[in-house]
C-alpha cells in the first residue's frame, strides 16, 4: 500500500478506476475534488467501498442533496446535462480528500437507493431531498416531510416550481444596475 499524500486526489482516481473501472463514468478532478458519476444500482456498493477501503476512508458524511438540471444553460444547447441527479459529498478526514458523487436518476420515475445503512447521517438529508425534489429513496424507513407542512403541494427545488413573487414580477426587475445605468441614473 503506497503512502498517500494529503489531498492526493489523483490517487483516489486511480483506485476507483481500477476497482470500479467501467461502472463509473467521467472521473474528473474539479477544483481539487473528485467528481464521480455512478448509476443508482451501483451507488451503495461505491459508497461502502469509499467508506471502508484502506487508504481512502471517506468516512465523514458531508451532505446529500439533489440538482434539477433541466433548465441548465441555453435552451438550444447541444450537450444537455442529465436533468435530475442526486448529489453526495464525502470527505476523508484521514487523507484530506473530497469526492462528489453524482447519481443520475430518471426524472419520470425518480428512484435512488438509500445509503442510510452506510451513512446513518443521510437519513435526514434523504428526507429533505425527497420533499424538495420528489426523489424516492429505496430502503429509507420514513420519507415523511422534514420541513414542509404535510399538505404542501409541489417539489419546491425543482425548476418547474416558481416562487410566487417571481411569477408576478419576473427577475430581474427594473432596479437592476445595468438598466439603471442605461437610463442615465
Amino acid at each position: 500500500m503506497p503512502v498517500i499524500e494529503r489531498g492526493d486526489v489523483g490517487h483516489v482516481r486511480e483506485r476507483l478506476d481500477s476497482d470500479f473501472g467501467t461502472r463509473l463514468k467521467d472521473l474528473r478532478i474539479n477544483h481539487g475534488h473528485l467528481d464521480v458519476i455512478v448509476q443508482p444500482h451501483d451507488l451503495v456498493e461505491l459508497v461502502t467501498f469509499l467508506r471502508d477501503a484502506p487508504g481512502l476512508r471517506f468516512r465523514f458524511f458531508t451532505f446529500l442533496s439533489g440538482v434539477d438540471r433541466s433548465a441548465f444553460g441555453p435552451e438550444d444547447a447541444e450537450d444537455k446535462p442529465h436533468p435530475l441527479e442526486v448529489l453526495i459529498h464525502l470527505y476523508s478526514p484521514d487523507h484530506v480528500l473530497h469526492v462528489t458523487i453524482h447519481v443520475p436518476v430518471d426524472p419520470a420515475d425518480p428512484v435512488c437507493p438509500s445509503i442510510n445503512r452506510v451513512f446513518a447521517g443521510a437519513l435526514w438529508h434523504e428526507r429533505e431531498t425527497h420533499e424538495m425534489f420528489g426523489i424516492d429513496f429505496d430502503g429509507h424507513p420514513n420519507l415523511s416531510n422534514l420541513y414542509l407542512p404535510e399538505d404542501f403541494e409541489g417539489r419546491p427545488l425543482l425548476k418547474s416550481f416558481k416562487l410566487p413573487s417571481r411569477m408576478v414580477k419576473d427577475w430581474p426587475g427594473a432596479k437592476d444596475p445595468e438598466e439603471a445605468a442605461a437610463g442615465g441614473r
Binding site: R59, F60, F61, T62, F119, A120, G121
Partner: peptide, 10 residues
C-alpha cells in the same frame, strides 16, 4: 467518534 463521522458531525 465513529458515529460522529457517520452522521457528519463537525
Amino acid at each position: 467518534k465513529e458515529i460522529a463521522y457517520n452522521y457528519g458531525v463537525s
